[in-house]
Design a protein around this nucleic acid. Structure first.
Lengths: 233, 233
DNA sequence: CGAGCGATTGATCATAATCAAGCGATGTGG
DNA sequence: CCACATCGCTTGATTATGATCAATCGCTCG
């Protein structure tokens, strides 16, 4: 990344920064989106709630992720974005976004890239929930999170942070918390995961990948485009 | 849509057009994407297959839909796109796309819009499969398809075409064909649908929406952006 | 006419949901 | 500093939704 690109990135992120506690929402279903949000630290998620209270988490946001690129083209949020941990994020106004992306094609390219990968991940979630068993589903999600965290340097050997509850995990996988708990025990018993105090360890990633039918192609980590990573800023 | 926009659209669609039979693939997982594909007539779908044969349809494409905007930014297809009926589609080379979108901001805006809505639909599918019962799930999908078809003028009163098999429906909803069949009977028995010879009728859309917890907000049909519809071309 | 496909039905099974209760750690107010 | 409330996790018992296995039927097409 060149000095010019870095400056452009600073310009993007350098405006208003905000801080939220776990469980607070960045933006809620029904709101009119005003800004693009870039997660700097902590974990967040996108979710939708049905009238009767059922809740589905549709994406996780890790540090460096863009929560909603271009969402200001839409009149109304059709989902909410909430903090899973304490977070800090940059609020990028539309004008700033347009100025920076207009002047810096590589930044625009990186944002486009990010959008395409986000779509690929969303598709894989559809496959995950639609076709995989509870055991595979949770294993697959763990593989995905581990790969994504590793790509931004947030793993430590075969371990990484996993700062959300089993209820969150249930809402993300379309399972009940009780069943998530039992499935986690099964994964543990098979030596595929260790999970202790918000730290996830994958002692045998190859075996987990096999059992969960995980193929990282969809993450497109072999990126040819420029890489935009808010952690670089 | 102005004459200039229309001319731009003609330029986009006016290149190579192709024709495929049902069950042929436009492009397959593992291929390198070369072009953007615009579906002109017929139905297609995006799908992924697991090693053991399980298959998940992740989106349906209706006439006028863009199958894969910008996909040429990615090195390799992580999914396939297949024809569900006989189809015709326009193959737009990267160069054409870049020339036209560079010169015609409204076209670019319309394509961006399309991408954002496609993402919203993909999220809703995640919710649908993750949280809704088989009955709600199929009902919800029918509502979605009906709304989308109506938006491009492809409905006839409370009826529309539904040119795919129960197996396709099963692969799209994450259910087995047997269970789809039984659920369809239940929907029929409750007077919410009629389904005969590839024609779907929704005699009581309001009731179906209620039972399926369908809220069309996510389709963003109240579009403020320009509307790109290949059928206009 | 026979093959193949899609839809349908029946019987049985399994995965995951539901209901309910208890445990341990953390945190707070009296 | 203790009492108790809360939260996240865990366990047990039971139920239900949807999967699986298997067979039949009608239709179209070569």
């Amino acid at each position: 990344m060149s000095a010019i690109d870095r400056a452009a990135l600073d310009e993007l992120v350098g405006g208003r920064q905000r801080r939220l506690q776990a469980r607070d929402d960045i933006i809620r279903e029904g709101d009119r989106p005003e800004d693009m949000n870039l997660l700097l630290t902590g974990w967040a998620c996108r979710y939708k709630t049905l009238e009767d209270g059922r809740r589905q988490i549709t994406s996780f946001f890790l540090p460096g992720d863009i929560c909603d690129l271009n969402v200001f083209y839409l009149r109304m949020m059709d989902h909410s974005i909430g903090a899973l941990t304490g977070i800090t994020y940059a609020e990028v106004p539309r004008a700033t976004y347009e100025r920076v992306s207009g002047r810096h094609p590589r930044i625009l390219q990186a944002l486009t890239w990010d959008t395409l990968v986000a779509m690929a991940v969303q598709r894989e979630w559809t496959v995950n929930i639609g076709q995989r068993s509870a055991y595979e589903r949770i294993g697959h999600l763990f593989c995905e999170l581990f790969y994504r965290l590793r790509a931004v340097g947030l793993t430590d050997g075969d371990s990484c942070d996993l700062p959300f509850t089993q209820i969150d995990l249930a809402d993300a996988t379309g399972l009940t918390p009780v069943h998530v708990n039992r499935t986690l025990q099964e994964l543990r018993a098979n030596g595929l995961i260790r999970l202790d105090r918000r730290t996830l360890t994958l002692p045998d990633l190859a075996a987990l990948k096999r059992d969960a039918l995980f193929d990282p192609t969809y993450l497109h980590l072999d990126r040819e485009g420029a890489h935009l990573d808010a952690n670089d800023a």
